[in-house]
Design a protein around this nucleic acid. Sequence first.
DNA 1: CATAATTATACTCATCTGGAGCATAATAGA
DNA 2: TCTATTATGCTCCAGATGAGTATAATTATG
Lengths: 320, 320
Amino acid sequence: MQDKTTKQTARSARGQAISADLIAVVIAVTNGEPRVLTIGQAGALPSGPFEFGHRSLQSGLRAWVERQTGHRLGYIEQLYTFADRDRIGDERMQRVISISYLGLTREEQAERSPMHGWQGWYNYFPWEDHRAGVPLMLPDVVMPRLRAWADEADNPYTRHDRWQRVAIAFGLDDRDWNEELALQRYELLYEAALVAEAVRSLNTGGASPIPGRPMIADHRRILATGIARLRTKIKYRPVVFELMPPIFTLLQLQRTVEALAGRLVHKQNFRRLIEQQDLVEETGETMSDTGGRPAKRFRFRQTVLAERTAAGTKLPLSRA
Amino acid sequence: MQDKTTKQTARSARGQAISADLIAVVIAVTNGEPRVLTIGQAGALPSGPFEFGHRSLQSGLRAWVERQTGHRLGYIEQLYTFADRDRIGDERMQRVISISYLGLTREEQAERSPMHGWQGWYNYFPWEDHRAGVPLMLPDVVMPRLRAWADEADNPYTRHDRWQRVAIAFGLDDRDWNEELALQRYELLYEAALVAEAVRSLNTGGASPIPGRPMIADHRRILATGIARLRTKIKYRPVVFELMPPIFTLLQLQRTVEALAGRLVHKQNFRRLIEQQDLVEETGETMSDTGGRPAKRFRFRQTVLAERTAAGTKLPLSRA
DNA sequence: CATAATTATACTCATCTGGAGCATAATAGA
DNA sequence: TCTATTATGCTCCAGATGAGTATAATTATG
């Protein structure tokens, strides 16, 4: 009886025809700059429809990225799935589900292919790079306009709510800047119609967008999702190594982390953290063209991968 | 030129017809027992196809859960999206994408509807409840069979790899039990064909499954995904409160956390943690039918929700 | 009513961890 | 040789965390 309910509903499902798009946020870090793999005029992420022939979502994604950019993906993980109303097919309106993935690689491979481009991700999010201090555009351009946006609300509660969200996302008052909130910041800027995509779709004429390169459809939002995820993840899983060459110095590793986080790290403490976790081992060689004392070279200890994949966070557990 | 490439591939997408299923893992905690909302003979999760009329994936999911169980969802978050080969339509083979969500609620509401059932989640995963110590079935049944599974591999590397994965997932040797690895454990048990679903689909005759109620298709795996996600999340976001009544004592809160984590918590430290984070405030009343000294009653401070939604983990940052 | 059992709370203590900064070492370049 | 720059080793301190001790306030029981 109850089983029937289930089956019937499931059956009606098959009638609806929809399509699914696979979208990839592929990241690499070169010369201390995080980059994202793009296609077209660097205004789009590699993507393509999930097809019948694909063995799985992942393999479909790999196929599309390879076809469009010549780049072969290594590590990938799912980001998010959504189905917006405004995503429309060609002739008739048709529902499209977008399934996005985050991929990590080293840039070098397949660098030759002409159909792809690695773009510094801070071109799309200039307000996210705090390595050289707070970007001037924040106090000079972004904050005033967000302030104005908050104030323009009729309802005082809305005003307060808007401003509080801004304060949290951008670390105002005595709050710290939290690099993990990249997505929330982009969404706020979109809501406030300060990014080109919002002006475009909301048709909010007049105001010009703040600096930062736009992308087609919602690709920039997807990129922001990937950045936020990666910034969170590097803190509890050794994923940075997916972006590193086989051999590296601790400073190179540090620069990579800083590039991703968009902020600086305390050098000595960074080394302590890495070493005490047994994440790396010395190769024995040193590297001397560092401009100072030669640095020891390290390699990632594959061994820990299995163990560290499992992490764990805090709870006042009892051992008994 | 490159833009064309994008558009063309996007276009070819529309031809493929696939369907998408929405699947819900809805959790509540009653009397210190975590429960999941099921339909049918308690062997399935609420689910249904994503339809053209649905405003979004989320609203489609809410509609299905409400129709099938009479339960109105509050907090929900996306879990995972997958597209298995073996998921087949009625007549012809058709691709189905499954999009799963985690929902948190209080059981009370709509308790009356006859078409639904709240099932203790440890019925499905008896090896996951370590509140009363390590379940006997682990040393008595599960571990020996996992050991045998590891040993039956021809390749010594495979043997070692299998056993290492088991050791990590189940906290052997000097490792701690990590409650967050619920999904990995289920997947290992599936791989070793120790759960009914695996025996069913792999057609591995003979061996009987270990204790633990099975579900249809991959619903139990999805449930495991939800459990793992929730166990991880309660540690850095105040989501537990979605499961609590408006007013509660600290012990009730603790019992809820313990129910989810499947392990005990140090009482004094738990209170310290909660209080120092300003997550709750006293109502002024006390509750005296606790069997001992009356307990103060608390309520969740909605105020912190906005702030705490943003969290942050560790990195040796520098403030300069 | 006295005592036991049970739950609530307040504190103390020993570690561990993370943020900062000082000091020294080892090179290249002026 | 002196200076600038990067690499490394160590120390300090404060706050967070795991455990355990000591009371307080009720209910259940004999």
